[in-house]
Simulated assay, not measured.
Amino acid sequence: MNTDAKFIVIEGLEGAGKTTAIQAVTRWLEQKSIEFVQTREPGGTPLAEQLRTLVKAQRDNEKVTAEAELLIMYASRVQLIENVIKPALAEGKWVVGDRHDLSSRAYQGGGRGISDELLNPIRSAVLQGFEPDLTLYLDIRPEVGLARASARGELDRIELEALTFFEKTRAKYQEIANASDNIITINAEQTIEEVQQSITLQLDQFFKS
């Protein structure tokens, strides 16, 4: 694998502004003439996109268990890692990801309450030590993010969860981010311009290091 190529991930709750943040990252890469590919989770390959549809769809006749949701997320993730992310990095291309493993730790671990005893062995088997070089976590209060997401249009199954679910998810995001050197927290309640400036500053510092 090309050690010069980097994997950068954007994380955050619904309505945190991940799309705008990704645009700031890709614009920064273009200005530096760095070749890159974009991915999203769940999804990013034909099979993974089908899994995305399955896990996000509302179902009136069947409850999606927390464990099934977790396994679908990791099945989608390993398809993306092995078929897109690793090959791109090996070719010297940077990868910009809309969500990655931190999402499962926050949403299924924090929000759903799945224990580390179940989650960690699955993570270990799927990732085998693979992780992003830099994660930009867009922190936002759930009520603010959900209001933004609702204004965009129809919500999916996960986005329709109760506020307490997202409060638990945010708490887990913050806990993990505070304990990790390669996860940078960005205040997503700033103006779009301020968020973009914060991201550019962090990318400049990351590139220099």
Rank of each mutant, 00 (worst) to 15 (best):
G111E: 06
Q50S: 12
D139Y: 13
V55C: 06
L47R: 06
E67S: 06
L47P: 05
G92L: 10
A90F: 14
T45I: 10
L119K: 10
F207R: 06
G111K: 01
A188G: 07
E62N: 05
L146Y: 04
R77M: 09
K168S: 03
L29C: 10
T169D: 02
G92W: 01
L127A: 04
T65V: 12
T200F: 07
D181E: 13
T39N: 05
V95R: 02
A66G: 02
L102P: 00
E41Y: 11
K172N: 08
Q196F: 04
S76F: 04
K6W: 00
E67P: 01
Q202Y: 05
F130N: 05
A188T: 03
I122F: 10
D181T: 11
V37L: 06
Q50L: 15
I85E: 00
E41V: 07
R77K: 15
A188R: 00
Q31C: 12
N83D: 09
V37A: 06
S115A: 13
I192C: 08
L29E: 03
F130L: 11
K18L: 06
G43W: 02
D139W: 12
A48I: 03
E117C: 14
F206H: 12
V9H: 00
I184W: 13
K93V: 04
S76N: 07
Q174N: 07
G44R: 01
I114N: 00
M1S: 09
A179W: 12
I114Y: 05
S104I: 05
K63A: 07
V55M: 09
Q197H: 10
L70S: 00
K32W: 14
A151E: 08
I22L: 03
L54N: 11
E35T: 11
I122T: 04
A151R: 10
G17Y: 02
R99W: 05
E131R: 14
W28A: 01
T20A: 07
E161T: 09
E11T: 05
E159A: 08
L155C: 13
L138M: 09
P42H: 11
E154H: 09
L160W: 11
S104G: 07
K172E: 09
Q128Y: 07
M1L: 13
E35I: 06
L127V: 10
V55P: 00
K63W: 07
V78I: 15
G109H: 06
F206N: 08
E30Y: 12
G129N: 12
L29H: 02
E69Q: 07
K6A: 01
F206L: 14
E194T: 15
A68E: 13
L155E: 02
I72G: 02
A90D: 13
G97T: 05
V55A: 08
G113H: 14
T191G: 08
R52T: 09
I158W: 03
V37S: 05
V25G: 06
I199W: 04
R52A: 05
E194M: 12
T200C: 14
R52K: 15
V84M: 04
F206C: 13
L138E: 03
V95A: 09
W94H: 04
V25E: 01
Q79R: 00
S115F: 07
E167M: 10
A68D: 13
Y107K: 00
S150N: 14
Q190D: 15
I8E: 00
T53A: 06
I199F: 07
L80F: 06
A5S: 12
V64Y: 07
Q197M: 10
E69D: 13
G12H: 01
